[in-house]
Design a protein around this nucleic acid. Structure first.
Lengths: 216, 216
DNA sequence: ATCCGCGTAATGTGATCACAAATCGGGGCG
DNA sequence: CGCCCCGATTTGTGATCACATTACGCGGAT
């Protein structure tokens, strides 16, 4: 609390801890759409003052992960159907490109890793663990896209995930599925075969699939 | 994230004035790549304390418009060639989609407006006014994309412009051109004809054209 | 019972301060 | 003459505070 009393640990700055904490919580859908947050509440939870809390919140607002009313009140955004469609289209555009760039760099170790993650997904789906599902699903995509060696594109994709986080939870909550995602298997098959058109189609399908039914 | 999505703000708060001031300056390339900024300096310039200056800077860092060293020092980023290529690819992906969505909504008034802006571009090019060129060029694109009715996509595109701002200036400074951009005329022609493939190609060419020679 | 006001509590904003770390300068040593 | 070290200054960070504004709940009037 008091800077003088805090031990001199090698620790990332306060606002960064707050930022990362809130970010993963939002991206994993652990905050419901429309839920309100207060600076003092955040500061209390992370044991910091208002200043780092405000900076973390401002950053998340800039990234579209939180929305801010004209009075400065902050909450997770409730997305309109039009906005969801836009974000899904953006995911499709960017992630298809990322997958395409990752394809020539994909080797067996990567495919093995993807299959392992897919196994984890099957487990959490069986357990009806929505947060675990979102986490594993994002890990699957991120693992693939990291091979593209395109940090700016990956950052853009993650920003889109962030904006979709709260509604994603709502989606997978109502989704009655019991099997591992079929499109992930198609992605892996296309990677193995070096089939770029097939990969692009599989990624686009995987990205679009779930979000379509949210617009109903 | 961008002014279009921000709710109606009656009075601009201090940090917002600082943010917008720095943002347009960066996007127009009025700050050289690698130029350093200090919080106290910014605060003094905008006649505010460090607090709003810090918030504005943090927001711009989150958007990739500024880079921050581990010690917290802030400066405009010096982009590597790989990153420039990535950002150009992102511009191409997003803006082609925006243009495509704007096409069915484009009517004569819009085309007239675009032609007027193109005339302005011809003027500033004749005067060797780099900042004026960037401003008019962005206005051309934004005017077209606003018709797409896709605020999330437009925000993404503007974020990419922001990241390219400082290097854009360097590019157009060394570019020895004296005529209005040819691809803008192709865009307008495709809009008039309702030719979607032609429009997509023209936008992609316009976006890629300039940035390619920066990677030399 | 419902709706409207009003007062209190809560919240965001911005300024200021203390502190630690980094940066830059000059002076001394090799 | 060049390099390194050390001190002063600059700079970012985070806490605290005062203030304006907003949201909320309680009470009364219709």
């Amino acid at each position: 609390m008091n800077p003088a009393t805090r031990p001199t640990e090698i620790v990332s700055s306060a606002h960064d801890r707050v930022y990362r904490g809130l970010r993963t919580r939002i991206m994993l859908g652990q905050i419901a759409p429309g839920e309100a947050l207060t600076l003092r509440g955040i500061g209390k939870e992370f044991e910091v003052s208002m200043t780092p809390a405000r900076e973390a919140v401002r950053r998340l607002v800039a990234e579209g992960a939180l929305s801010m009313s004209s009075s400065g009140r902050v909450q997770t955004p409730e997305l309109s159907n039009e906005r969801i469609e836009e974000l899904a289209a953006l995911r499709s555009l960017i992630e298809v490109e990322l997958a395409s760039r990752a394809l020539p760099r994909a080797h067996m170790a990567l495919i093995d890793r993807l299959q392992t993650i897919n196994g984890t997904i099957a487990e959490v789906v069986r357990d009806r663990d929505a947060v675990g599902y979102i986490r594993s699903n994002l890990e699957f995509h991120r693992t693939l896209y990291l091979r593209a060696q395109a940090p700016a594109m990956l950052a853009m994709a993650e920003t889109v995930w962030l904006q979709l986080g709260p509604t994603m939870r709502a989606l997978y909550g109502r989704l009655r599925r019991s099997e591992a995602p079929q499109f992930h298997r198609l992605i892996i098959a296309a990677l193995k075969a070096g089939d770029e058109p097939g990969l692009r189609l599989a990624v686009r399908s995987d990205v679009t699939q779930g979000l379509k039914m949210l617009a109903s």
